[in-house]
Design a protein around this nucleic acid. Structure first.
Ligand SMILES: NC(=O)c1ccc[n+]([C@@H]2O[C@H](COP(=O)([O-])OP(=O)(O)OC[C@H]3O[C@@H](n4cnc5c(N)ncnc54)[C@H](O)[C@@H]3O)[C@@H](O)[C@H]2O)c1
Ligand SMILES: NC(=O)c1ccc[n+]([C@@H]2O[C@H](COP(=O)([O-])OP(=O)(O)OC[C@H]3O[C@@H](n4cnc5c(N)ncnc54)[C@H](O)[C@@H]3O)[C@@H](O)[C@H]2O)c1
Lengths: 211, 211
DNA sequence: TATTCCTTGTGATAAATTTCACAAATCCTG
DNA sequence: CAGGATTTGTGAAATTTATCACAAGGAATA
């Protein structure tokens, strides 16, 4: 159950295992081998075992892993057994898509406060939430004790919004704006590099002369 | 100008350098050092140089890199100097957000065909495009010679849609559904692991007992 | 219970990626 | 034009990550 130094990649894969386990569980199976898990995730089975062993010994030789127990364990390791209140900054194209996404709620992420700086939008109701003025981010999230923020505003405004979140006591930020946010080390930022992904695709196709 | 074996990470960073170079260029500077590029990207300067040298020698000792030339070069290396027609599968929350996103067009990705399987949606117009029946994906993209597809449908339907894209001759897929698509090796898939990112954030906060 | 089969956990090995550190190239100043 | 200041490109070293391969544990069967 080492807390030592777990590769970022392993953590990301944990999330993938959890999703696959959910599918296997729903299909009615009770055990699963690292080989099968690896196959479904497109990985090497030793890697699956290594990843899991970072957190403890959950398997039984000759049998594999108990699906529901492993699922529950990973959920707990990732802190996904509790509801996590979230603030959304920027109720535009992407922000609204995230707001309507059921998958977040299913995973325990509850969007509780939403902000924008557009006078037309502030005060309106979206998905049962009143859009608040961006200037009140700090006060509001402090009041509601929200510790996770999602940034979906243009990159020119992202750093300033991040600062307000941090001032309000935010602990983690999921950032969709294409910019490296500067934050104190006690704050964790995870970037969703959406455009980069598309550009990577372009590169690979271009390299193979497919465009 | 080696085509040898370029790390995936380097390719993703290329995209980041390009974005930063754009900013520096717009700010009116003409040259930039690997040190500054590294600082802005949050990386080591040797890494920046190594990344760039994969593709050629663009720098001048004592001076650094010529901003606009490097920007243009990276754009070309990534195949982003040409318009790339794209098909979008799934005009739901996320699909509509992507459809309205200007950043794609700016990068040369032009969404030309959009598909859904919802009878209510098929035939309607969205952003100037008629939503087409998902059953016609193969025919349509073959006709229009579209080589990149974006999948924004539930994961249960994603593999079947991917198959139709492949049948229509697609070369690359940007996949937002949380599932590993099985595709022939001549097709490139890039996954946007959105939920995984949020779950990673949960893990890091949880580990530090911040939730 | 003995035997066979399967699968874990893990040390060793390999591969990939990052960082260091410095010679060589070029710029800039006086 | 000399000399000092920079900054590149790059081998070598260090670090990180992935894979191999196998002993040992446990299940299943007879
Ligand atoms: N939409 C996409 O598909 C997509 C894809 C990749 C990246 N992104 C990135 O995500 C971010 C949002 O994209 P979008 O398409 O939703 O943009 P958008 O313009 O549709 O929405 C941005 C919203 O943020 C609000 N806003 C602007 N400044 C603000 C501020 N200072 N405080 C609070 N709210 C503010 C605007 O009023 C608007 O409602 C951008 O950084 C974009 O680059 C979006
Ligand atoms: N919206 C988000 O913020 C978000 C976040 C993370 C991941 N995702 C993933 O992105 C995908 C789309 O999410 P969403 O929120 O837009 O869902 P959504 O339900 O809003 O939209 C899905 C759309 O796909 C259409 N569709 C369903 N089956 C189809 C088929 N076989 N062919 C063509 N169209 C079909 C539906 O009619 C609907 O219009 C999902 O896989 C989801 O898990 C979404």
């Amino acid at each position: 159950m080492e807390n030592y130094k777990i590769p970022k990649k392993s953590v990301e894969r944990l999330s993938i295992y959890k999703r696959i386990l959910k599918g296997i569980m729903d299909a009615g199976f009770t055990t699963v081998s690292s080989r099968e898990l690896a196959e479904r995730a497109g990985l090497n089975s030793a890697q699956v075992r290594k990843d899991l062993v970072y957190f403890g010994q959950f398997g039984t030789p000759g049998m594999g892993y108990h699906v529901s127990i492993l699922h529950r364990t990973i959920t707990k390791i990732m802190g996904l057994h509790k509801k996590i209140p979230v603030a959304l900054i920027g109720v535009g194209n992407l922000g609204q898509a995230l707001l309507s996404y059921q998958g977040f709620k299913e995973r325990g992420f509850i969007i509780e406060s939403i902000f924008d700086n557009d006078r037309e939008k502030v005060g309106k109701i979206k998905n049962g939430l009143k859009i608040m003025d961006e200037r009140n981010i700090s006060i509001e999230i402090k009041k509601k004790n929200i510790r996770v923020g999602i940034i979906t505003i243009p990159s020119s405004a992202a750093q300033s919004a991040a600062n307000k979140l941090i001032k309000g006591g935010i602990k983690g930020i999921l950032n969709f704006a294409p910019i490296e946010l500067k934050v104190p080390s006690r704050t964790t930022v995870v970037n969703v590099a959406l455009c980069e992904k598309l550009e990577m695709l372009s590169y690979y196709l271009s390299k193979r002369k497919l465009l």
